[in-house]
Design a protein around this nucleic acid. Structure first.
Lengths: 337, 337
DNA sequence: TTGTAAGCGTTATCAG
DNA sequence: CTGATAACGCTTACAA
């Protein structure tokens, strides 16, 4: 930088101004400096800048995995919104391991992030404690819960699953199965399960333990789950609530294989509204969430915090029920209360 | 830091050593320092560290979009491999816009990344020039091309599409259509198209201009493309080569709608081998690429470069043909040469 | 094993 | 509008 200053016949302070407060520099000087910088192939050094200005222009996001479109699009929305404001984004994946999430956040703090977004609130207390200690503004992404101590920007998963359950109850279903992702360390999934329970309780119903299956978020798990449900002795469910579309599509696929009529014999619901959901046969009843929007809104929220604006109290993103062909009236007399 | 040093009764140099070369510090001193740091709630400052050590422990990756699983998994592999070595990853998305890719790379360089990965080589020359000027090691991801001036870690898309085309030719097909993503600024897609052309030329064949359709990478485009192909006057293709599985699944779906027998009347191929590909009906013939592995290998490559090891000359990741039910022998007498 | 002290490359605060 | 100059917080020879 001093070389550039020398070559342009100015001080380093002026060189700095050319890049940080161009308005405060006369045109002729600016041109000379830019010319000199170009000739000497000089670029401002990030570390020096960050050190002197105490601004890194870096934010971070920690998600469980990029293998799930739901998280990928949140990252995508956030990255775009931040980039538009000159902020570069760190990405960390926890693979649903709280320890990993913690260490990713710590690494980001150690690299000087100015703001952080983490998916969900089922994290070690040290994680939020570290955020507090470093005084780094943060948001909890994707999950929204009434009464959460954090700023949440996301979906009320409990309410969403209450709604989808009510939809099935309204269709006359009384015997339910649930195929859902691992609940461990996953507040979204736990909330969904709670939503199902609460909605069913309202009607004096419950999911039998043997009708609650937990497994990976894959089509294959959906297939295996339905097969095992169907092989079980005892009454069969007339409706299956799945933790997401992948699982639901697997159930649909296996139902076809087993010759189970959908929705005649069995109603199936998903969550996420993937592009294929509406193309499945029958088209899948599911819930749509604008996950990209979650990322965008979260970025705006954090930018506001960085700008010193009072941050709002969080933000609920709606989950919209898409009723399609995979759910229908219950025709099973045994199923009816 | 000096406060911590004072409290622990040591010099700042020793405090630094506790965190950077713990082996060179006696146990008692280390404990005292850690205790003091804890009490004072002190953490080393990233900018100061980077400035003094000229190491940022940051790398970057620039991809077109996270909406495509193919790129998401490359990011995922790279992130994991880097995290294991204490390197945090910047993520940038270009949305297939070369200017955007350039500005993302510039932003990352300005933030002091030590290494960078960019998807493909269809970028403005300034991008690679900037990388050269900053002397930041980089790799071209996903695309591999013989004779490329860059270190490429990825798939030989031309060869892959030669193979899939040969597969169809061997089945007796002579009349082809192609439904593919926009070729503009996309060297992978261009290479795939070239592969098709080269393979067909070997047999004295070519795709008629009206049978080459370009569009977005969506199921919906696949549907629209097939509909328009089928409405056209003139001879119909007996095989459709799609740019990826999304498009191919759309074609499959629309064929069902139009009552086109697959593979009896029409063979269809995809690329990527998504999880649903094998569950489609009929199951989709496609090509599998271990995209996560690409990210992992690229990270290793860059880490080697950072360690000063001679970097190898790039790396080809195989695309494996998965022959399934969507392709079969050509039954159309008109189609046969 | 530990301390001293000179940077690392900017920005920010003053004067001018 | 521009220039000195003192931070910014840490690392790292070099000495001890």
């Amino acid at each position: 930088m001093s070389d550039v200053a020398k070559r342009a016949g100015v001080s380093t302070a002026t060189v700095s101004r050319v890049y940080n407060e161009p308005g405060k520099v006369s045109d002729s000087v600016r041109e000379r400096v830019e010319q000199a910088a170009l000739e000497l192939n000089w670029f401002p050094n990030a570390a020096g800048r960050a050190l002197a200005s105490t601004r890194s222009h870096i934010a971070g996001i920690v998600i469980p995995t990029l293998d799930d479109q739901v998280f990928a699009s949140q990252v995508s929305g956030m990255q775009a919104a931040f980039a538009a404001r000159g902020i570069t984004l760190f990405l960390g994946c926890s693979n649903y391991d709280p320890k990993e999430a913690l260490s990713q956040v710590q690494a980001m703090l150690a690299r000087g992030v100015e703001a952080i977004a983490v998916v969900g609130e089922a994290h070690p207390p040290e994680l939020f404690e570290a955020l507090r200690v470093w005084r780094v503004p943060y948001v909890v992404l994707y999950a929204w819960r009434k009464g959460s101590p954090h700023d949440c920007i996301g979906v009320d998963h409990r309410a969403a699953y209450e709604e989808i359950t009510e939809h099935l109850v309204a269709l006359g279903h009384r015997s339910f199965a649930v195929c859902i992702q691992p609940t461990r360390d996953n507040d979204r999934v736990q909330a969904r399960l709670a939503g199902i329970r609460i909605a069913l309780e309202r009607h004096g119903l419950a999911v039998r333990p043997e009708h609650l299956v937990e497994g990976e978020s894959t089509l294959d798990f959906g297939r295996r789950a339905l097969r095992s449900l169907w092989q079980q002795p005892g009454p069969r469910p007339t409706a299956i609530i799945c933790g997401n579309d992948h699982i639901a599509l697997g159930v649909l696929r296996e139902a076809e294989e087993l010759g189970i009529a959908i929705p005649g014999q069995l109603s199936v619901t998903g969550f996420d509204d993937l592009a294929i959901a509406r193309e499945a046969r029958p088209p899948l009843t599911t819930m749509y969430v604008d996950t990209r929007e979650i990322g965008t809104v979260a970025a705006r929220h954090l930018l506001d915090a960085l700008d010193g604006h009072a941050t709002r109290q969080g933000y609920t993103v709606p989950a919209v029920l898409k009723v399609r062909g995979s759910t229908g009236p219950c025709h099973d007399s045994a199923g009816k209360g």
